[in-house]
Design a protein around this nucleic acid. Structure first.
Lengths: 340, 340
DNA sequence: GTCTGGCACTCCGTCCGTGCGAGTGCCAGC
DNA sequence: GCTGGCACTCGCACGGACGGAGTGCCAGAC
């Protein structure tokens, strides 16, 4: 029907205008700024229908209309195309990320970049340990009975853990232990590491058996620890800028970002294979974020993401541009990590 | 003079009342809540003098008085005693920090703890590399000509760096390199490491010489890199709470915290040997922080601090309590790092 | 049937004037 | 040198009036 088609055009126009002006948009303004080919009166009728269907709402009886979460959802799903980045932007991204020297640096730069591109709060998850593989294990003696276990993954992530052995260990045993662990675990996916432990313990020389068992246990524990996944946050200053759009919700959002757990959960639920996920307002399970939208995507191989990254901002945001930025940064990060 | 003495009492009372109520404080309220032994009229005279001297100011002609930066300064220097923490609080600190498993964890917990105790934004600097000593160096081959250099310090800090050698390296050389580096650097203060390089290169076997030179250079570079000092930030949600006290300055503060450089500079200027440093309002060199106060102290050995930690908040804060919290946390962190 | 112009209505945001209360500064008296 | 009293100054909260933006509805045109 021509009707429905035009109504969607109206919705799109409302979203676009509202995002750019931050004022509830009325029928006259709409007719002026978009050539929809009909008069304000007709638009009013369409708006009434859209409101009845729950796509838009008016803050006050005699104000313009504002998109609802449902309206943004429809806009994102059907009314917008992801806006490709300009060549200059791509160039800038590449240049900005190229100087990175290690994982921490890559993620730090990426998060700043993403925050700058979208003018929102950006978050990046460290590459998930369980999907990484062991590149190297290092054992360093800290004190007589204390060993420092350092794990280096193929994504460049380095984890450390102090292991308290009940008895003193001599330097020779440490060296043997190092060799044993490396030959057993190097190249193994961390998710499968736990399965390798029994065999390792069985085949270890008797005098090392308890030591190997203890250290392996600590290693596995480090891997499955719920806190294993870290989050890098950037661009929180953008929250202050958008504070007007997020009435009184700045604090819960900051809290959620510090909690990490909540945001991690959102960001890591992206394993669907490279497509950008948008969660709008109430769609976010966690209460603190019901006034905000989250745009996220996985990075790394498309089928098995190493981790997620994304942005958090007001529901009133420029989705097409932000989705493009998120996708582009994820692509570059994935590339960089695959190289290193 | 009895005069001056009482005037200071008045100033102290003003600071205390203003900090707890957030309302400009008038002569009557002051007389009611503190037994200064004189009438409101007398207090008014004292206040007039204090205002003339620049210690207090009135926001509007007929409002109460508010301390100025100069007033807070006098209060901190002469009118307040650092308020000792309660036994329960000490207990809580200890318990909270005890479960930490590695450096990252220690700093993360500390920053959260400090933010919670003071209800302000807390920051902790990673132990300065240049004051740490090498515990172990690890070299891992990433690809034919790429080596990953991992540095473990005696404070538990782990730094990594990818080194690109122009030629392929065989596994044996990597092992030799590892041994060489460790025997040369282990135990050395990082600040002195640069001095050790020439000798190391000279004594290295000829076929390793270029390799050793390249890797050492990268190592030294990592150490002196300006970005070497990292900052952990926590409790930014507290900024939202105190937003009313910091008119329009939330954003610059968040930006400064992300910049890190600015805050690092403030936090690390504390080498004066264990005393807590307070910078009030305009005393902060950086523009973004002129509306805020910074309370900081070094942690580690009192003579040579490993790093700094502190809080950032409105000038209107509870200095005695916060100074105590900052000092206490620094002490515990220093202890924990010395142990590990 | 669909669109359009016109019109009355609603309601928000702003402005302005008033009254109130808090707090001050000053002065005369103790 | 301290105190009580008093006039004065302002800021702020309250309330009514006004203007403007936007809507919903209706009758007429295509």
């Amino acid at each position: 029907m021509a009707h429905d088609e035009r109504r969607l055009q109206v919705l799109r126009a409302i979203v676009q205008d509202y995002v750019s002006t931050n004022d509830p948009v009325g029928s006259k303004a709409l007719a002026d700024r978009h050539d929809l080919g009909v008069s304000p009166a007709t638009i009013r009728n369409d708006m009434a229908v859209l409101e009845e269907q729950g796509y838009i709402a008016q803050p006050h009886t005699s104000a313009g209309r504002v998109p609802t979460d449902k309206g943004y959802r429809l806009f994102v799903d059907r009314l917008s195309a992801v806006k490709p980045l300009s060549g200059a932007e791509r160039k800038a991204i590449e240049k900005f990320l190229d100087g990175a020297v290690d994982l921490h640096d890559v993620l730090g730069r990426s998060v700043r970049l993403l925050a700058q591109l979208t003018r929102q709060v950006a978050v990046i998850q460290y590459p998930t340990l369980s999907r990484s593989a062991v590149r190297h294990l290092e054992v360093v003696q800290v004190a007589g009975s204390r060993l420092l276990l350092v794990l280096i993954t193929d994504t460049g992530r380095v984890e450390q853990r102090v292991v308290e052995c009940s008895v003193d260990v001599d330097a020779e045993s440490v060296a043997e232990l190092r060799t044993l662990l490396n030959s057993a675990f190097t190249g193994a996916k961390l998710a499968e590491a736990a399965g390798l432990v029994p065999e390792l313990v069985d085949t270890a020389p008797p005098h090392l058996r308890t030591l190997v068992a203890g250290v392996s246990a600590a290693l596995i524990e480090t891997l499955v620890e719920p806190g294993e996944d870290r989050l890098v946050v950037g661009g929180t200053a953008n929250l202050a800028r958008t504070a007007l759009d997020l009435p009184g919700t700045v604090r819960p959002i900051l809290e959620a970002l510090e909690e990490q757990v909540v945001v991690l959960k959102l960001i890591s639920e992206v394993d669907t294979g490279g497509t950008v996920v948008v969660r709008i307002g109430e769609e976010n399970a966690h209460e603190a974020l019901t006034g905000a939208s989250v745009v996220s995507v996985g990075y790394g191989a498309p089928d098995r993401a190493l981790g997620g990254l994304g942005i958090v901002g007001p529901t009133r945001m420029d989705y097409p541009t932000n989705m493009a930025a998120v996708r582009a940064v994820a692509r570059y990060v994935g590339q960089l990590l695959a190289e290193s």
